[in-house]
Design a protein around this nucleic acid. Structure first.
Lengths: 196, 196
DNA sequence: CAGTCGCTTGACCGACCGGTCTACTTTTTG
DNA sequence: CAAAAAGTAGACCGGTCGGTCAAGCGACTG
């Protein structure tokens, strides 16, 4: 229904821009112009809402941002630049609009919740695994095309994901999206060699 | 006094292992075996406590972990490996003791608080700047010694810091300290060239 | 037209939040 | 030794938290 998706959208934005603990259900209800009873008709608990938000955003990500950035038409290594650019423009748009960088919803939630909720941690882990697989496929292709010397693509893919999250973390702390532009491209220099 | 430092120590551990919002003042007081009145005698607010915790930990860091890892006696590039190892053993010790990886206190707080409190963000930023300067000095030395081809040491230092934070974030999400051992050494492959 | 079912309303709950306050004890200081 | 200052004790505050619930709504269905 429309109520459910309105709650989901508002919660997503609030969780992203602030944090899980800092956003209250009442506030979400106000933002979505919904009463508490309705909220609890659709979501058994705040935690379940958060899980739904993660799924929702992961879906949007997979079909929007990621699908574009990892466009098969581009040469593999250029996809990485494309993705950095996409991350930059997205964060910059938020910074211009709201005066602050929300960072990565998944990274934010991962650091906040990993030590408190294993189910949520597992869910975020799965999102990261999917992202890593995208990197990995890209690297595999680059190696196959001879654009890159053979390397441990799985580990390097994880390293690239970690680097991306780290760059966004640093940019958010500096409240300066340009950090992504300056540091981002170095993602291509990361290498983990194959183990023997 | 001793009461103040007991509060500080307990708060640090709790903030590190969970999050700022998730830890209550009452809980901290119980942990430190102190009454609320005493707490507010030493700290005007929870937020000020958090700032004090940041300063306290930054100090310990600078004089302990960092000072060791960036030991001047070691060849520059080996210091990076040493630092990765130190991060690994620290996180592993926590994981073994408490069953969970706390991650980096500064990274955790940065993602949780950056959009909500500019003073705290600035404080965390300063901590990161200091860490970056350590990386930078190491890189400068490596270049001077000819162990590394000339590069943009300041930007590369930031990239390395971001990567370290990202690796810890990923390891925490996977709840597996070994991630640090596998991905960490690739920090030496990061390069940002000098701009012309 | 009666009944049911998805959805909504909003009052209400106990628990806990960060923070205040007054009274009391201990330590320092002149 | 007296007085002031530093620290401790713990009851208390309004507000908000996540969550519950009984009642009511309108739209389908028999």
């Amino acid at each position: 229904t429309d109520t459910r998706s309105r709650i989901l959208a508002v919660a997503r934005e609030m969780f992203h821009g602030r944090s899980y603990a800092d956003v209250g259900i009442q506030e979400i209800c106000e933002g979505a112009r919904v009463q508490k009873g309705s909220f609890y008709h659709f979501f058994p608990s705040k935690r379940d809402l958060a899980l739904a938000v993660i799924d929702d955003m992961a879906d949007d990500w997979a079909h929007g941002f990621v699908a574009e950035a990892f466009d098969q038409a581009l040469p593999p290594l250029e996809r990485l630049d494309y993705m950095i650019d996409a991350a930059y423009y997205w964060q910059k748009a938020s910074a211009d609009l709201e005066g602050r960088m929300p960072g990565c919803l998944f990274g934010n939630l991962a650091l906040e919740m990993s030590t408190r909720d294993d189910v949520m941690r597992a869910r975020l882990n799965a999102v990261f695994d999917k992202a890593r697989d995208q990197f990995r496929a890209t690297l595999d292709e680059a190696v196959a095309l001879g654009a890159l010397a053979a390397l441990n693509t799985e580990a390097t893919a994880s390293a690239m994901l970690a680097y991306l999250e780290g760059v966004i973390l640093l940019a958010k702390t500096r409240n300066d999206p340009e950090v992504i532009l300056v540091l981002g491209p170095a993602i291509k220099t990361l290498r983990i060699e194959m183990s023997h």
